[in-house]
Amino acid sequence: MDSLEALVKRHIKEFPDFQYYGAFGEFISAIESYHQDLNMGVSSDCCNSLLQSICRTIITQIDSVEIDKLNSMRTDELIRKAVKLLQKNDDVYERDFVVQLGKTGISINGIRNSRGELSHGRHIPKELINDQDLSRLLREITESISRYLISSLFSFKLEQIKEEPEIEKDLIRYEDNPEFNEFLDEDYPYEGKLLYSQALYTLYYEDYTIKLQTFLDEQELLDEE
């Protein structure tokens, strides 16, 4: 899971909450050196949980979906929905890609159901013996899919930030002009909890700045006299 951990660490400033997945990856890696008899079962449980968690995060950050509905979805359903939300276009190749990832999710979920130790306790002796090569393959596939999903989400979110209108650096702050605000409120009594100056600033910022400049110009003339 080294590449997944490295990806999360590279973007820790922009997405600090995702350090959770870096720690998750470290946990799965630690299982490799843990009790050999539990390696396959625990690893498959964790891999399946990791994919489900990442997909739920992607879906809730891009689309408004009830959590209860997501909790009832299988791994392959979560992967397909997450990847569809991350698609940059609707061409045939990407649709087929979504289907294939979904099938991979079915396989991972199947391994977890048949060999998992945590979610479905197994009687002993177990019917299926541990296969270290299969366990390694499962971790590598999970890492690749996880890295693809998280990297795509990072790109999606950063692109959204670029497209958002930039806030003017020289934006006038309401609280910086108390005398002008008081002048407005006295000239335009406003019924209710909101002051006229606040309403003008919030709803008609350009009008506020024009009136402010006029006020400042008049104050400067008075000072000169």
Rank of each mutant, 00 (worst) to 15 (best):
L118M: 12
V65D: 01
E66D: 12
E66G: 08
L78M: 03
T104R: 09
I108R: 05
I67Q: 13
A82L: 07
K126Y: 15
I108F: 05
R115H: 10
K81C: 01
I111Y: 15
K84A: 13
I106D: 15
D90M: 08
L70V: 00
N109S: 15
Q61L: 12
G105D: 08
S119T: 15
S53K: 03
L70H: 00
P125T: 14
V99P: 00
V65P: 00
I108P: 03
V99C: 00
L118A: 13
D91I: 01
G110A: 13
N89A: 10
R112Q: 14
E66R: 13
L118P: 03
I79F: 06
Q52E: 11
L101E: 02
S72I: 02
H120M: 13
I67G: 03
R74C: 00
C55V: 06
D96W: 00
I54V: 10
I79H: 04
L86N: 07
D63Q: 13
L101Y: 05
S53R: 03
I111M: 15
L85T: 04
T104I: 13
K84Y: 10
H120D: 11
E77W: 07
T104V: 12
I67P: 02
P125A: 13
N89C: 06
K84L: 09
Q100G: 09
A82F: 04
Q52T: 00
G116D: 13
V65Y: 06
G102C: 07
V92S: 01
Y93E: 06
S107K: 04
K84I: 12
K103H: 10
H120E: 14
L51A: 08
P125F: 12
I58Y: 03
D91F: 01
R56Q: 13
T60G: 02
L85V: 03
D68A: 10
I79M: 07
E77G: 10
I67L: 12
L85F: 08
L85A: 06
E66C: 04
K84S: 14
I124L: 15
I79V: 06
D63T: 09
G121M: 15
T60Q: 14
